[in-house]
Amino acid sequence: MRGTDQPDSVGARLAVRLSGLRTEHGWSLDELSRRTDVSRSTLSRLERGELSPTATVLGRLCAAYGRTMSRLLMEVEAEPPALVPAAQQPVWRDEPSGFVRRSVSPPHAGLRAEIVEGTLDAGAALSYGNPPVPGVEQHIWVLEGTVEITVDDTVHTVRRGDCLRFRLRGPSRFRCPGPDRVRYALLIVMP
């Protein structure tokens, strides 16, 4: 299964959680499809664990359910300890888009912030619709390479060592212009 480090770990639990969220909301597959613009058949395959979601699809599902991607992924992981060794940080891959997401400091009950390491291949781009939690605060610190981040219709070119900070209220886009991949740290602070 694409998107998982081990076939029976995060991907399988994510499929179960996605199915549970839809049930909790009382939505049919048709209703969820209408809310996310993801086909009914794709949603069904995701919930059965036959298909792993891309970053774009997962972003649409998170928006429909009012969760950040990190929060959703936290719900399928065991509660993290105070110390999160590098070898135990959950990693999620979206091979088609060239995106890798490491949850360096996973969300934790009672804490409002989390840290994510993201890498995006040269030439790759990710677009997100409206945020699942409007007004979420983000700080993006580029560790290697360059990324173009579009927020509020403004394109920001963020280079190694630069930090972009904002409150996310609408669509956003990440694009790595190359020639090398970009690696960045993302600090997310819930409102």
Rank of each mutant, 00 (worst) to 15 (best):
S70Q: 09
D5M: 07
P177N: 12
F99E: 14
A55H: 09
V76T: 11
I140K: 06
G20E: 00
V155W: 12
F166M: 02
E79W: 06
Y65S: 10
V189L: 04
T36F: 04
L126C: 09
P81C: 01
Q89S: 00
L61R: 01
G178A: 09
L61D: 06
E24L: 08
Y128M: 10
E50K: 09
L83F: 06
E137C: 03
A113D: 12
G11K: 02
P177I: 10
T4G: 04
G118E: 14
I188H: 04
Y128E: 05
E114N: 02
L14A: 04
G145V: 13
Y128S: 11
M190Q: 13
P179Y: 15
S103W: 01
Y65M: 03
R102N: 04
T4V: 14
E79G: 00
V189Q: 03
I115C: 05
E114R: 01
G145P: 05
G11H: 02
R34C: 02
S41F: 06
T68P: 10
D121F: 08
C176K: 06
I140L: 13
G66S: 04
T56E: 15
G49D: 00
G129S: 12
N130A: 15
G20N: 07
D5T: 05
Y128C: 08
E31D: 12
S70I: 12
T36S: 01
I140E: 10
V158F: 10
M74N: 12
V151N: 00
